[in-house]
């Protein structure tokens, strides 16, 4: 009896495994995960090809890509030279969309608070512990803040969103740069950890008094309040599609950035970009692939998919609050994809 049951199970599994189609597996950044979910679903409808993407965090995206357990990775923190060398050297960063990192909070009845870099850093450094602190009130005349402790929410996993956010803080606050620094995972002075952008948004949603940083779509789709941040021009800017695109335009004005893009290196930073309408915490997100694909069948599917993502796929970005790539960048990216060797 037991033998029969085992036989049936084995036979079933064998037939099942033979019936499989080619699936391209990718994992990484949670920042663009809602968009990739949408893109891959649409891509499957259009072409029948299955691209499986799982949001596990940018750190994981790079690690699993390097370990070879995924066919491509996703990250919002560009790989360092050492990481690229570990992954075999032939790594191509394909930018897909841009997104804003929103500072999101949960204070019922208190909308549109304004923060500047110093106060934001002090909150995440644990120097400002309560919502009715004078420094917050000074930036928000006329708003009455409750006497509530601030619960800082941050990522518990290696995260590109963290990388973008801490890079911003390190650039604008010397004490942040000295005490904490910037990276995919840092030693947080205060707060609770949530897994993925979703986890942090979840923490903010269920805990009154919480504040954290999440990709814009996680905040908006979920009805979380977002703070207006003071940019380099001294204006308080709300994170939106337009202020994200404005930041990209501002960043591309720099000679150095333009040179990088023209040479096919898309690891550009959009952080604290100039321009009066630019939101200060903006980042690109990349898919990482090998320039030399070993498996011809998979390589072809992957190439087609990448080309679709940066062209046709861009139209799905705005409805999920990601900013499409600027035209000038897009053309360069397409030719980079064409250069992938199968």
């Amino acid at each position: 009896m037991i033998k029969k049951a085992l036989g049936v199970i084995c036979a079933g599994l064998l037939t099942a495994s033979m019936a499989s189609a080619v699936v391209i597996n990718g994992a990484g950044a949670t920042f663009p995960y809602p968009l990739y979910l949408k893109l891959n679903t649409e891509y499957q409808k259009a072409t029948g090809k299955q691209i499986n993407y799982q949001g596990i965090g940018s750190g994981g995206g790079i690690r699993q890509f390097t370990a070879g357990t995924t066919d491509f990775g996703g990250t919002d923190a560009a790989m360092t030279e050492k990481e690229i060398a570990d992954a075999g050297g032939d790594v191509l960063h394909i930018p897909t969309v841009m997104g804003a990192v929103a500072v999101s909070y949960n204070l019922p009845g208190v909308k549109d608070i304004k923060l500047d870099a110093g106060v934001l850093a002090d909150i995440f450094l644990g120097k400002i512990k309560n919502w009715d602190h004078s420094a917050i009130a000074a930036l928000n005349p006329g708003v009455s803040f409750p006497n509530k402790p601030i619960l800082v929410a941050h990522r518990s996993d290696g995260s590109g969103t963290t990388d973008i956010f801490t890079n911003y803080l390190a650039r604008v606050s010397t004490s942040w740069a000295a005490k904490v620094g910037a990276g995919k995972a840092v030693k947080w002075p205060v707060g609770v950890g949530g897994k993925g952008n979703a986890g942090v948004a979840g923490v903010i949603k269920v805990n009154e008094g919480a504040i954290g940083y999440v990709e814009l779509s996680y905040a908006m789709e979920n009805g979380l309040s977002v703070a207006l941040l003071k940019n380099r021009a001294g204006k308080f800017i709300r994170p939106t599609l337009d202020s994200t695109s404005a930041a990209a335009a501002g960043a591309l004005e720099a000679e150095k950035t333009r040179k990088m893009v023209n040479s096919g290196d898309f690891r550009i930073s959009l952080c604290n970009a100039p321009g009066k309408d630019s939101y200060p915490i903006v980042g690109l997100t990349w898919l990482i692939v090998h320039k030399n694909q070993k498996n011809a069948e998979k390589g072809k599917i992957l190439k087609d998919y990448l080309r679709w993502v940066v062209t046709t796929g861009q139209k799905y970005a705005p409805e999920l609050l990601y900013a499409p790539l600027p035209e000038t960048v897009k053309n360069k990216v397409v030719s980079a994809i064409d250069g992938i060797k199968i």
Binding site: A27, G57, S58, R63, S156, G193
Partner: peptide, 30 residues
């Protein structure tokens, strides 16, 4: 548990356990 690697005197504060840090970070160790 709140996933925070810190020894706090208060049980109201977040903490972290051996098992949960593995669950959170294993696939994404940097």
């Amino acid at each position: 548990i709140g996933n925070r690697p810190e020894i706090s005197s208060s049980v109201f504060a977040p903490a972290y356990t051996l098992a949960s840090v593995i669950a959170n970070e294993f696939a994404e160790a940097v």
